[in-house]
Design a protein around this nucleic acid. Structure first.
Lengths: 209, 209
DNA sequence: GGACACATGTAACGGGTTACATGATTTC
DNA sequence: GAAATCATGTAACCCGTTACATGTGTCC
């Protein structure tokens, strides 16, 4: 029995309530997509493995002539999930893959306007995240969210995601602004701005250990 | 010819200067690891493909009896890199994989103390990032960095990475603090704090479009 | 003489992605 | 009756990972 984090993600959702994989795929797309993204084909494949291990059960149902399969967690599944939630399989740190940052890193090899374009594109890409956050946030504010009773922890997830999107957006905005100023600045001015970043961050007061 | 982003990452580094893969693997570990992480075996495999396409050249050298292979970019490689840097293959948005956040999401299924433990672990995991940032930042501040002349753009990368690490650390700290207060609070107080998050973020003044 | 850094890989595996396929049901 | 949604997959591929293997050079 070889479970991946994907397995636990699905198993965890099944612990909330039974789902068809169609509904669950949608649920995951709107809820965990931005920090745990998986292809739909994966979402459909996983519960079969869980059933094979006895961690989930499948029940075939009919809507007229159309078949649908409801998956639910079993007692064994709940125990396995508890084990995982209790650790001690250490959770890995945040794992970021950010192609635009690679482009910034390599941008001295290209033309300056491409750097600005990359940064603008970062901001465009983030709108999806802001919209998703708006939808989720709105539902909780209005008290109509499907898992309203999870509001304490969902607000933590929301907090992180919105903070992240704001950070990325702010960073892209100030970096693009910097790059646009370059043609009108002296090299000394450009350098001074760069060095200020290295000396202001991280806030020396923050350092622990 | 089917190049991945990994191909361009390596090709881009070869455009900076020729490298042995041993040195390049180290370079990438300290520079791009936190937003573009690849296994070393991958770093060794990639340039062979680039040589196959004529985008890089290999030259065998000797240190006594020990062989080393220096890879360098070719003219064709430089053209291909230019094409990529100029777009228009759109760069994907930031792609985050954050298992701890999934655990927070599912934490109502477990015990509250495990939530706090997860959050504390996030902070531990970040120390590596802070240390790496310190090293890089220190080198640029002292003017001794290998690519000191890239300071304008490297400061942007540094800016993002440090901001991200600070954000994640601050978030984990305030979330853990919240969870620790729960036992002493009324349900109304807990809810009020959660709802405040939804209404304060995102800053309504920020909304564009 | 031993430990560690230098230097370069190979083999096996697998989780995950993309693209495609299929048919029923509801909605307009 | 067409279009969108519901619902569930399969097939092929491949990028990337883990784990291991091998030998030289250098430092103490």
């Amino acid at each position: 029995m070889n479970l991946t984090t994907t397995s636990y993600a699905i198993l965890g959702h099944l612990a909330l309530q039974p789902w068809t994989m169609y509904d669950l795929a949608q649920q995951m797309r709107s809820n965990v997509h931005f920090f745990f993204s998986r292809a739909e084909s994966q979402v459909y494949a996983e519960p079969k493995r869980l059933v094979g291990y006895g961690l989930a059960s499948a029940s075939r149902q009919m809507t007229g002539k159309r078949a649908r399969t409801l998956y639910a967690i079993t007692d064994a599944g709940r125990r396995e999930l508890d084990r995982w939630l209790a650790g001690p399989d250490a959770a890995k740190g945040p794992d970021l893959e950010f192609e635009a940052l690679l482009r910034v890193f390599l941008s001295p090899l290209g033309r300056p306007e491409h750097l600005v374009a990359t940064l603008e594109q970062v901001r465009d890409n983030l709108s999806e995240m802001f919209e998703a956050a708006d939808r989720v946030g709105g539902a909780y504010r209005e008290g109509t969210a499907a898992f309203q009773h999870h509001v304490l922890t969902r607000s933590m997830v929301y907090d992180f995601l919105v903070s992240f999107a704001e950070l990325a957006d702010d960073w892209a905005a100030r970096s693009a602004a910097r790059a646009r100023r370059w043609p009108d600045q002296s090299e000394a001015e450009r350098l001074a701005e760069a060095m200020r970043i290295f000396s202001e961050k991280p806030d020396p007061a923050r350092r622990r250990d």
